[in-house]
Computed example of a mutant assay.
Amino acid sequence: MTETKYTVNGMTCGHCAASVTEEINKIGGVSDVAVDVPTGAVTVTSDAELSESAVRAAVEEAGYELAQ
């Protein structure tokens, strides 16, 4: 298992977190997504290392931006 932390800009509520979680969960191998709305922290647990571009695309699909 691999745990990777990201920062997502623009989330302000539980609905935001749910949207981001839903899109990231669509990435193959993801087993858990934990979102902390106040800080924008997103922790993704997966079977193997995920490509940042896949996570970025999922976050953008949800309508938010992955911080650099």
Rank of each mutant, 00 (worst) to 15 (best):
E3C: 12
S46L: 00
V59M: 03
S46K: 10
V20Q: 05
H15K: 12
V20F: 05
C13T: 08
T39Y: 02
Y64E: 02
N25K: 15
M11L: 09
E60I: 09
T2S: 13
S19Y: 05
A17Q: 03
E61I: 00
D36H: 08
C16N: 02
Q68R: 11
M1D: 15
V59Y: 02
E65A: 11
T39H: 02
C13H: 01
S53Q: 13
V8T: 10
E49L: 14
A18V: 11
E49P: 11
G29W: 02
A67F: 13
T21V: 07
V42C: 04
V55P: 00
G14P: 04
T21N: 09
Y64N: 01
V37E: 07
T7Q: 13
V44K: 07
N9W: 10
A48H: 14
E61G: 10
D36N: 11
Y6I: 08
I27N: 08
V8W: 03
T43Q: 01
M11Y: 07
G40Q: 06
A18K: 13
T21H: 06
A18H: 12
G63P: 10
T12Q: 07
Q68F: 13
K5A: 15
S51N: 14
H15V: 14
V33H: 00
S46F: 01
R56Q: 09
E52K: 14
V44H: 00
V59N: 00
E61Y: 10
E49Y: 01
T45K: 14
T12A: 09
I24W: 01
S46G: 04
N25H: 07
S19Q: 02
A62D: 01
C16L: 09
A18R: 11
S19E: 01
G29A: 04
V20E: 07
A58W: 04
Y64A: 02
Y6H: 11
C13I: 06
M11I: 12
V55S: 05
T2N: 14
A41Q: 08
E65I: 11
R56E: 09
D47F: 09
S53L: 11
A41I: 02
V30D: 00
T4R: 13
A62P: 02
K5V: 00
A48S: 15
P38L: 07
S53A: 15
G14A: 10
S53M: 12
E65R: 10
C13W: 06
V33I: 02
V42R: 06
T43D: 05
A62Y: 04
E3L: 11
V55C: 06
Y6E: 08
A48V: 14
V20C: 07
E22P: 13
C16Q: 00
S53C: 13
R56M: 09
V8F: 09
V30S: 01
N25S: 12
E60S: 10
G28D: 15
E65V: 13
G40I: 08
G40N: 02
V8E: 03
P38R: 06
H15A: 14
A67I: 07
T12K: 05
A34R: 11
V8L: 11
E60N: 01
A18N: 13
L50P: 01
G28S: 15
V59Q: 01
